[in-house]
Each structure stands twice: as C-alpha cells, then as structure tokens.
C-alpha cells in the first residue's frame, strides 16, 4: 500500500509530539489544579483558585512581560523589515552571505550571548566605561538593570526570527508585480503600501508570532540584563518551580501565559490574517 507510506513516515514525528508535548502539557494541566507541597505531596483537588491566586499575585509581572514582549516585537518589526527588504531586493548575488551573517549569532549559545551583552552594557564596561571616560556620559549613567536593557536584549536575541520570515515572504514577491504597479501610475511609496507590504503580511505575521511569543515568555534577558524591577513572568515560573518548588502555582502561571498568548495571537490573526486587511490595502 504505497499511498500509506507518507503516513508511516510521519508517524514517528507524531508519536514524538504526542509523547513529549501533549503528555507533559496534560500532566502540567493536571498539576496546575492540585494542592499541597513538596514534603507532604500534591493531591488533585481541581482547585481553580491556583489560577486566581497566581494571577492576583503576579499580574504585575504578567502585564510587564506582555508590554516588554510587545514593545520588543514592535522594535524588531521596525528594525527588521527594512533589513529583510534590503536582502530580498537589493543584496543581489550576496543574498546568501547576508542570510548567513544573520544566523551567525546562533552559533553561540543564547545565554552566553546575553551575558556578553551584560559585559558590554556594564556600568564601567567597554561601551559605557569608554563613553564615561570621554565625558560623553555622566558618571552615574547606567543601562544594566533597566527596562531598556531587557527590551534591548530581547530585540537583539530575537531579531533574526523577525527578519527571516519577512525575507521569505518578500523574496516570493514577483518583481514584475512591482513593475506592474509602477506601470499603473503608482509611486514608490504607493507601490510599497498597496503591493509590497500587503504581499509580505504573511511573513510579518509569522515574524511577529516567532518573536512575540518567545520574547514574552523569556526569563534569560530579564535575569541577566534586568534588575529587581524588571522581573518577567518567565522568571516567576522559574522561581516557583526551581526555588519554591510550588509546582501548582508555576503550572497555573504557565497556563495563564499560554492562554493570554493564544488569545492575543487569535485576535492578531483575525486582524491581520483575514482578507479584510488585504482588501483594505487594495483600495
């Protein structure tokens, strides 16, 4: 039965996902409704109060994470779109080299990269130290342990994930369609607004998804570059799990975050992914 071959070949991956994704998520969902502690053990009580308690306790960090993730995503979009555009339309035969450069940072571990950013931004580090030495910056100026540092780190770490999908979408735009727009009396700006941008929206959507979600949930940047007032929800999950061993609370926070992100993405998809936006752009 040759027509079953694709299914058989896909089976290991499905099993892998089922065992290592669905099962743990289900287990976590179950844990999030238990009560107890590490010493006495946890018992399933279907206690929904875990959620309301967690939200009440950590709403500040949750909102902060969404704001940081959102701001970082917007900055990445603003920085990344022109880069993707430039590589897709202007880089010529050196395209693959620039794509490689874009991926180069990934050859260094995520944590290490963030830590080296820490060195770079340290109060008396290479950058600030030098600038202070020159008298360009006041002596008490600091970046580390501020919102700017955390969002900057998020932007730095996730930027390629914004650029790549936009690049792929732009690369697929037929240059003759752009010429057709010029031919039909559209200016450069108008061509971008009516033709290039709408055709790249699927890439923008993917890019936003691939950056907003991990950036919002990321604990590393806040931990390495942030201070006590920059704690993000990822740090809370980490602390509750690994330090406090409060598994129900940690699970409840994780699920809350997941739900918020899913709802946000759903609204975003409805706004951007549907034909309405495209039709508006066609006018």
């Amino acid at each position: 039965m040759r027509r079953w071959t694709p299914y058989w070949l896909a089976l290991p991956a499905w099993l892998w996902l089922a065992i290592f994704l669905v099962v743990p998520i289900a287990a976590m969902a179950s844990v999030s409704l238990t009560t107890g502690n590490l010493i006495d053990g946890f018992t399933q009580t279907f206690s929904v109060s875990n959620y309301s308690d967690a939200i009440a306790k950590y709403s500040t960090q949750l909102v902060r994470s969404l704001v940081y993730g959102g701001v970082a995503t917007v900055i990445m979009l603003v920085l990344g779109y022109p880069v993707a555009y430039w590589i897709a339309f202007k880089a010529g035969h050196r395209k693959s080299m620039f794509l490689f450069l874009l991926l180069l940072p990934f050859f260094v571990s995520f944590v290490l990269r963030t830590i080296s950013w820490g060195f770079l931004l340290a109060d008396d580090g290479i950058l600030l130290g030098t600038l202070k030495g020159w008298g360009v910056l006041p002596q008490d100026f600091h970046v580390l342990a501020t919102t700017v540092a955390v969002i900057g780190g998020l932007v730095y770490n996730f930027l390629p994930f914004m650029i790549l999908p936009i690049y792929v979408a732009l690369e697929r735009v037929d240059p003759r369609v752009i010429e057709a727009s010029y031919d039909l009396y559209a200016s450069r700006l108008s061509t971008f607004r009516r033709v290039v941008l709408p055709l790249s929206l699927p890439g923008v959507f993917a890019g936003v998804l691939m950056t907003f979600v991990p950036a919002t949930a990321d604990p590393i940047n806040a931990q390495v570059l942030g201070g006590t007032s920059n704690t993000m929800i990822g740090n809370i999950v980490q602390t509750e799990y690994l330090v406090n061993n409060d598994y129900p609370t940690a699970s409840a926070i994780s699920f809350t975050l997941m739900a918020v992100l899913l709802i946000g993405i759903f609204i975003y998809a409805r706004a951007l992914g549907t034909e309405n936006v495209l039709e508006a752009a066609a006018r």
Binding site: R176, V177, A180, L184, A281, A282
Partner: peptide, 19 residues
Amino acid sequence: PNKRDINMVFQSYALFPHM
C-alpha cells in the same frame, strides 16, 4: 514608468495576487 501614458501587459500577467 508611472509618469508615462503607456501601459504594459506582462508576460506572466503580473496580476496583483492579493486583489
């Protein structure tokens, strides 16, 4: 081209796929 009173039919039509 956008200031010329000439229009073109492209080889692969180059229709706007999103319209």
